[in-house]
Write a protein that binds this DNA or RNA. Structure first.
Length: 921
RNA sequence: AGGACUAUAGCUCAGUUGGUUAGAGCGCUACCUUGACAUGGUAGAGGUCCCCAGUUCGAAUCUGGGUAGUCCUACCA
């Protein structure tokens, strides 16, 4: 074995082996456990957040697989309609091709080509992370099977009246030329202006003044509204104003939506270009004048001078024209929320179009009940509130998108504007008795990607067929996801699955935090602070990292800034840490918080942990290979240390199981780290040396220690495997035979379960004593500057029978671990030399000072100890002196305090005596 | 505007139903190449648990108020 752990050499080898051997597929068993992967975008690549999520799912999957569950981790990707279409459009653009020139069919072909080409990135990354996904069942939302499910769902919902077509205001992206859902619009505060315009009264006697942030929409105004109780304008209600620049008169209406305090208290109403105005327009039966085209340029409904102008050009023109007419009263600076498309980043226009909608209100009812009734639970529970808040105020879901890439809507139109929904044109003709004389054309639009994602848990298992997989693995066990898509995906999956399966999609939703960079910033391409998890595994040099972060940017002008910050943050690039270290880092960060700051320092610590594991195994193998390890059941004698480490192992098994059940991977990783490093390596391996290296130790003793070394190691390798799959497999292969275990892989070995009976309290207490004595001596050594190599003679005084027994049984351990020449037991009445002292309970550890210890240094050390004790004692005395504490606190708490006080007092006296003696020297 | 979450060591974070000497990792200081490991070992320093009030014998923990930060939802043209 190498002296240091080299992850690169083993990881891909083992993954290949596992995959080729079919270990990732369900293995049978009475109880099923399944997780459906949140499908990543097929043309994207995994970022740190994905890596985190996959690591958690893989730990759950490996854990349950080892527990003997029939385990399925369903893999797949989604087609990411808008994102993918944009990427391909940009590629074509670079070649000077417009997709409209290419035509729909050819364009979609290009997208499939791109999908084939780039789709491997994600799956490669997933494999590098060690994800034990069942690749044989890989699915894609545009697969024939899943597409069939999408069509089926659409048709059935339509027939049930839960999908309808309607003309509504939608969020229109004028660059992507599609409607998008409310969730895809991000509103952010931006600086803008509030323009005050005069609208002349129709009678010619004066004007009223409206305030607006979007002057261009005035071309579509069909009313001015005031508050019904606003005395300033009461006399104007029912009259008309003449709309400047347009040859129209519009009414002044009263509506209590108007806020009297804002602006002038008069609101121009543009029902076709504003959501609130739209509602008001409907209330008052106002005409709706659409003044924009698909590009958000002014259309032919507007006065001639403005036609064809872009909306922002039109704005400038209109303001200028009104000003020249003397109708501009003033312009104020104003901060407003500007809606932008989450993909395109352009300002979204409310726009009147025909779209398809899902009646979400109806579907939401059972979905709310499922969480209320506990059929689905969120972890952490607080997310249920978020879910409820959104679901109880849910809006109908606009599902049509004016794209070419996606599931085409199964609806056909005739020339008279009738439409028919069905599985094909033939089916529609048949059903509605439409002959060849009627020409039909299919709806041009496709469905929102989330529409197909919402079916993910059951469409991947073969629905609408009632497959065996559906029966076995649905509902799935748990959904692992980030809170950012609770609305987008989680809620919609619950609605759709309950409707079509009459069962929940999953029993638990584990909501994890979002991975951020070291400064707490969200990782994003445009900020240039993303880290590819693979770069943490394999490492990357500085120039490579910069190149990666600045490639293919939407805003190339940011490249310089990104290069600078990258150079500052990673002057040496990124080291290679290996998959196991990366995964363990993820687990250690997976607490209940919402933000996960990824600190590069942590991963280095866990890389070192891997190395520790590696070397611990080396030590064990060096001492056990070709040696008698008692694997045939020969007689063996266990030392105190053997019994203790076995006991600690059981406690660790219990801790890990509890942590995983509660989705506290941070606690699981901590328990493992603590046990492996601080107990097994720091103490147990050291305690094994006095036995193995003692020529006088019996065969049974050596055998007992070897047996314990190897079996405890073998057990914790299995315990650790779901978290660090590679190193555990590599080490287990050589360790297992020595422990009498066999099998082709650790991944299919049984997971260690805690045996309560194996917890050995006596051994725990004895080892605590042993540690106490050793640490006491080391402490004196350290603080007195006694060279570590210098062997000491130590005296033990004031001990009781138990101390004596412990000493007798453990003297060799003490001598080895504390580097002692000799230990002398001080009988009652025996005079002790002047010595530096440490206490373990009442037992005094004495390190004679002659020639070793500086008087002043020891006095200083003692006075520090004394001070600490005195401070503590004052606190306890105060507590016990308080009558109400003694009266009201539970008896055992009081007793505990009393005991503590006594012990502290005794210790204090001892140290003070000691101080006296030394001072008199 | 409404709501949620967070505040503990220099940094990143644990801290179960109130009773601990408030912990870990990283970083820091000193010493050490001892026969698994310098990606290591040993010892050590470092905290007004954001502030104020309350409940309680007792509060990092519970309640109320405040401050700071993050986020979500809805928005005033």
């Amino acid at each position: 074995m190498d002296k240091t752990f080299q992850p690169a050499t083993i990881e891909t080898r083992w993954y290949q082996e596992w995959e080729d051997s079919g270990y990732f597929a369900p293995q049978g068993g009475d109880r099923a456990y399944s997780i459906m992967i949140p499908p990543p975008n097929v043309t994207g690549s995994l970022h740190m957040g994905h890596g985190f999520q996959e690591a958690i799912m893989d730990a759950l999957i490996r854990y349950h697989r080892m527990l003997g569950y029939n385990t399925l981790w369903q893999v797949g990707t989604d087609h990411a309609g808008i994102a993918t279409q944009m990427v391909v459009e940009r590629q074509l653009e670079a070649e000077g091709i417009d997709r409209h020139d290419l035509g729909r069919e050819k364009f979609v072909e290009k997208v499939w080509e791109w999908k084939e080409q780039s789709g491997g990135t994600i799956t490669r990354q997933l494999r590098r992370l060690g994800s034990s996904l069942d690749w044989s069942r890989e699915r894609f939302t545009m697969d024939p099977g899943l597409s069939l499910a999408v069509q089926e769902v659409f048709i059935r919902l339509y027939r049930e009246g839960l999908i309808y077509r309607g003309q509504r205001l939608v969020n229109w992206d004028p660059v992507l030329h599609t409607a998008i859902s409310d969730l895809e619009v991000l509103s952010q505060e931006e600086k803008g202006h509030l323009w005050h315009f005069h609208y002349p009264l129709a009678g010619g006697e004066g004007h009223l003044t409206v305030a607006t942030t979007r002057p261009e929409t005035m071309l579509g105004d069909t009313a001015v509204a005031v508050h019904p109780e606003d005395e300033r304008y009461a006399h104007l209600i029912g009259r008309t104003v003449s709309l400047p620049l347009c040859d129209r008169e519009i009414p002044v209406i009263a509506d209590d939506y108007v806020d009297r305090e804002f602006g002038t208290g008069c609101v121009k109403i543009t029902p076709a270009h504003d959501f609130n105005d739209y509602e008001m327009g409907k209330r008052h039966g106002l005409p709706m004048i659409n003044i924009l085209d698909d590009n958000a340029a002014i259309n032919a409904n507007a006065p001639a001078p403005y036609r064809g102008l872009d909306r922002f050009e039109a704005r400038q023109r209109i303001v200028a024209d009104l000003e020249s007419m003397g109708l501009l009263e003033k312009v104020e600076d104003h901060t407003l929320k500007v809606p932008r498309g989450d993909r395109s980043g352009v300002v979204i226009e409310p726009y009147l179009t025909n779209q398809w909608y899902v009646d979400a209100r109806e579907l939401a009812k059972p979905a709310i009940a499922a969480v209320e009734d506990g059929d689905i639970r969120f972890v952490p529970k607080q997310w249920e509130n978020t879910y409820f808040a959104w679901m109880r105020d849910i809006q109908d879901w606009c599902i049509s998108r004016q794209l070419w890439w996606g599931h085409r809507i199964p609806a056909w139109y005739d020339d008279d504007g009738n439409f028919y929904v069905g599985e094909s044109e033939a089916a529609v003709r048949e059903e509605h008795g439409l002959g060849d004389e009627t020409s039909l054309r299919q709806d041009e639009d496709v469905l929102d990607t989330w529409f197909s994602s919402a079916l993910w848990t059951f469409s991947t298992l073969g629905w609408p067929e009632e497959t065996e997989e559906l029966a076995t693995f649905h509902p799935s066990s748990v959904l692992v996801t980030g809170f950012d898509i609770i609305f987008f995906w989680v809620a919609r999956m619950i609605m759709m699955t309950l409707h079509f399966r009459r069962e929940v999609p999953f029993h638990t939703v584990y909501v994890h935090g979002l991975v951020r960079d070291g400064e707490g910033q969200k990782m994003s391409k445009s900020k240039g602070n993303v880290i590819d998890p693979i770069d943490l595994i394999d490492g990357i040099d500085l120039e490579g990292l910069i190149a990666k972060r600045t490639a293919g940017m939407m805003q190339p002008q940011l490249a310089e800034k990104i290069e600078g910050s990258t150079r500052r943050q990673f002057p040496e690039g990124i080291n290679a840490y290996g998959t196991d270290a990366l995964r363990f880092t993820y687990y250690s960060l997976a607490s209940t918080g919402r933000d996960i700051k990824f600190d590069i320092g942590r991963i280095e610590g866990y890389r070192n942990f891997c190395n520790k594991i590696w070397n611990a195994a080396r030590y064990v193998l060096m001492n056990c290979e070709n040696e008698d390890c008692g694997s045939e059941g020969e007689a063996l004698q266990l030392s105190l240390a053997d019994r203790w480490i076995e006991s600690k192992l059981q406690e660790t098994c219990a801790d890990v199981a509890r942590a995983v059940e509660n989705y506290r991977f941070d606690l699981a990783s901590q328990a493992l780290y603590e046990f492996i490093w601080n107990e097994y390596c720091d103490w147990y391996l050291e305690l094994s040396k006095p036995v193995l290296w003692d020529e006088n130790a019996s065969v049974e003793e050596k055998r007992g220690t070897r047996r314990t070394l190897i079996t405890v190691l073998e057990t914790w390798l299995r315990l650790l495997h779901p978290f660090m799959p590679f190193i555990t497999e590599e080490v287990w292969q050589t360790v297992a035979p020595l422990a009498g275990k066999s099998g082709p892989t650790i991944m299919l070995q049984p997971y260690p379960l805690a045996r309560d009976k194996a917890v050995d309290n006596a051994a725990n207490a004895d080892i605590e004593w042993l540690k106490g004595v050793i640490v006491g001596i080391r402490n004196i050594r350290g603080e007195m500057g006694i060279p570590p190599g210098k062997k000491l003679t130590v005296l033990l005084g004031n001990g009781d029978a138990r101390d004596k027994m412990r000493l007798e049984q453990n003297a060799p351990f003490l001598e080895k671990l504390a580097k002692l020449a000799a230990i002398k037991w001080l009988g009652e009445g025996e005079e002790a030399p002047v010595a530096a002292t440490a206490l373990v309970g009442e037992l005094e550890i004495l390190v004679p000072m002659a020639g070793l210890i500086d008087k002043d240094a020891e006095l200083a050390r003692l006075s520090r100890e004394v001070e600490k004790l005195e401070k503590d004692l004052t606190r306890i005395r105060g507590k016990l002196g308080n009558a109400s504490f003694v009266d009201k606190a539970p008896a055992d708490v009081v007793a505990k305090e009393r005991e503590k006080m006594q012990a502290q007092q005794q210790a204090l006296e001892k140290l003070q005596e000691q101080e006296q003696r030394i001072r008199q020297l």
